[in-house]
Design a protein around this nucleic acid. Structure first.
Lengths: 216, 216
DNA sequence: CAAGCATTGTGAACTGCGTAACGACATTAA
DNA sequence: TTAATGTCGTTACGCAGTTCACAATGCTTG
């Protein structure tokens, strides 16, 4: 199996973003330990993550910033761009849309859906909003294979079912439920509630540790 | 060390939410494998996660829905509620605020900050918005120990520094950068860009697998 | 009342990820 | 030319997290 771990892919995405900022600052070369410090990782991990990318740095200069960035992009991105559908234009959906507007040219939200008639037909950030009934037609026409779910939890499963039925292979799900999907479909979850409660729990732990440490 | 893993805490949060829905449907009891199916986990993992909670089910009835929910809450939540500050009231910040408005009474966003004068002084979802300059004062007055960062990437580090300086012990960071924080501070990351690119990558992989599977 | 059965709780094996360690190599300086 | 330096690519190890497996438990049923 030459399959890459999810964690590695996540970090590669982060490395690339950091490299992009460095390139803007005209930085030419960077060492693994420098990149690691910026990404919150270790030098060994950076080098290891870069193995599957196939780009080799120089022992004396380190990695060429722009070259490495391009190599990661070549490794991760679709060769000819990827269109994404966004379902749900409530507060969260609109925030997501704003967030990604003109960020990565290779990975763009091109259409949106909602079942609120007052939103259908309008364009948000240049993206036309369709009614959920038109899912099948619009997705087929635009050859879309990935979708973002930003609808309330109680609609998420049925939306996912619809999307998969339309030939979607990957989902980014913001609804706080676990989706039942067939094995060939990939789902990435962003669960804000869970993250919030996790943070709250470990915040309390951190406070406890600080207090006991003080008294000790 | 009786320290609990982050993953377990995350799943406990999810279990509790599922139990809440079940309780609303008047479900009395549930088995580990049922809960596992709903949470997208395995029965063994559910049982293992529940160990530190200290609630025991019955071999014949399973777990009492409401009792288990209460036990998890007792285990995870602060005994007397927890206040959270939100920094940044752009699109994302407002979406987060809406998302949490009146969701968990035990964990509430009580104040917000922004450095845009046009937002300062107004109230969003019942939360007064203060100017970032007032961070120190307001956080001390309200005894806040946790904060959400929803500002652009280039301000995130300085906001974090400020917050930690005000006695914050835990952060939930939405900005797409890795924060440098002292060891006693816990940081939970939600990186939408990374999740999006991860999903895009594995979507492509899923498509490739489907195609090669078909041809094989 | 006893046998049967499905489930719980947990020790033990397993898997996969992150870290450490090490040989290889290009440059620099004497 | 040759030794010294510092980083890269890769293999090996250790640990945390997940799954497996089974004894213990307490309803159900004949």
């Amino acid at each position: 199996m030459n399959s890459i771990s999810e964690k590695t892919i996540g970090r590669l995405s982060l490395y690339r973003r950091i490299l992009g900022e460095l390139a803007q600052k005209q930085t030419q070369h960077i060492y693994s330990h420098e990149l690691a410090a910026m990404a919150g990782a270790t030098a060994a991990q950076v080098r290891r993550d870069l193995m599957p990318v196939g780009y080799s740095g120089s022992p004396t200069k380190g990695y060429g910033v722009r070259d490495l960035m391009d190599s990661i992009s070549k490794f991760m991105d679709a060769p000819c761009g990827q269109s994404v559908a966004l379902v749900g234009l409530g507060n969260l959906g609109r925030a997501i849309l704003t967030y990604f507007a003109g960020r990565r040219p290779n990975l763009t939200i091109t259409v949106t859906f909602d079942n609120d008639r007052s939103r259908v037909g309008k364009a948000f950030h240049g993206c036309r909003c369709y009614h959920t009934e038109e899912l099948q037609k619009v997705i087929a026409q635009n050859n879309i294979r990935m979708a973002i779910i930003a609808v309330p939890a109680d609609h998420a499963q049925s939306v996912a079912d619809n999307l998969i039925n339309c030939g979607i292979y990957g989902l980014l799900n913001f609804a706080p439920i676990s989706l039942r999907v067939p094995g060939h479909v990939y789902v990435e979850y962003i669960d804000i509630t869970t993250s919030m409660e996790k943070a709250a729990y470990f915040t309390r732990r951190a406070i406890e540790r600080a207090k006991s440490g003080k008294s000790a």
